[in-house]
């Protein structure tokens, strides 16, 4: 075999392996989704959305857990969204080149990749210890702290995509900087910012670790934000590891619901980016 043939063979081998690697990645996505559908669909019934989490052995649903997850995610995004957007605005507009912005960007990146269970410990020390008990609001704060760095990052990136000429035009009309930001920059970057918020919601709605010792869990219907509140991830965790078949079934169904919602959110976010703002296209 001459040198050329060896090189060609090596090339073919390497490229086939890279195709194989991609197939492996896609295979695991398919395998996980298939497992969820196979095990989760069996338990899907109107009762899942209308009954409370049951004691072992009797039938029930996930209503209180769904409610708790939605409420805590909403509160978290209502706190984390505006804070993240304002901080991102500072980084992209007012403090674009200042030294403190470089530090904030770095710290934000650290928070973005910090283990979520550490955030749970922080909120435990901050709120749960002081209040003396677990509570839904502590869970929501933990989720908000996880949402903030995501929002900061996407907001800054999206605001940076707004052409400088548009801002200059607004400034030339005599607008103050805040007016330029709220009336020109925000509308131009709206779809990008919405995408960031959707991604933040997708990120926090599946988080389990930070809720384990902040919101804890609650077997009953509760709307009291100052008391422990049921939530889907922790219920899945508890039920999946239980020896009771009816609990395990509910865990699979809950897992299916949560994954499908998150995948829909992520795909929607991507569609928003590619459809509405040509600047955001990758």
């Amino acid at each position: 075999m001459n040198r050329r043939a060896i090189r060609k063979a090596l090339n073919l081998l390497a490229l086939s392996l890279s195709g194989l690697a991609t197939a492996i990645g896609l295979f695991f996505l398919g395998a996980i989704l298939w497992t969820l559908i196979k095990n989760g669909v069996a338990g899907l019934s109107p009762k899942v959305f209308s009954a409370m989490t049951p004691p072992p052995g009797s039938s029930g649903g996930l209503l209180n857990a769904l409610y708790g997850s939605i409420v805590m995610t909403l509160i978290a995004i209502l706190i984390g969204g505006p804070v993240g957007m304002l901080a991102g605005t500072y980084l992209a507009e007012y403090g674009r080149t200042s030294r403190i912005s470089a530090v904030i960007r770095f710290v934000n990146d650290v928070l973005l990749s910090a283990p979520s269970i550490i955030i749970g410990l922080f909120v435990y020390e901050l709120l749960v210890v002081r209040m003396g008990h677990f509570s839904a609001i502590a869970g929501a704060v933990a989720l908000a702290i996880i949402a903030i760095p995501v929002t900061v990052r996407t907001t800054e990136d999206m605001l940076n995509l707004v052409p400088q000429g548009m801002k200059d035009a607004s400034t030339a009309m005599g607008a103050y900087h805040w007016r330029t930001i709220t009336s020109v920059v925000y509308p131009a970057a709206r779809s990008g910012i919405v995408t960031g918020l959707l991604l933040a919601i997708a990120r926090i709605s599946g988080e389990t670790a930070p809720l384990l010792f902040t919101a804890l869990n609650n077997q009953f219907w509760s709307t009291n934000l100052l008391a422990p509140m049921a939530n889907l991830p922790v219920v899945i965790f508890q039920f999946a590891l239980s020896p009771y078949p009816n609990w395990q079934q509910l865990a699979w169904t809950g897992a299916l619901i949560i994954t499908v919602s998150i995948l829909i959110l992520s795909v929607t976010a991507r569609i928003v980016v590619s459809r509405l703002s040509p600047a955001g296209r990758r």
Partner: peptide, 30 residues
Amino acid sequence: QRLRERVFRLATLAAALLVLLLLGGVVLSL
């Protein structure tokens, strides 16, 4: 206008500093 400018600017700065405060809080509580 100038007042609003100052308020908005301070609000964004405060939010940005909160990010630093969060990391500080995490370290301190640990």
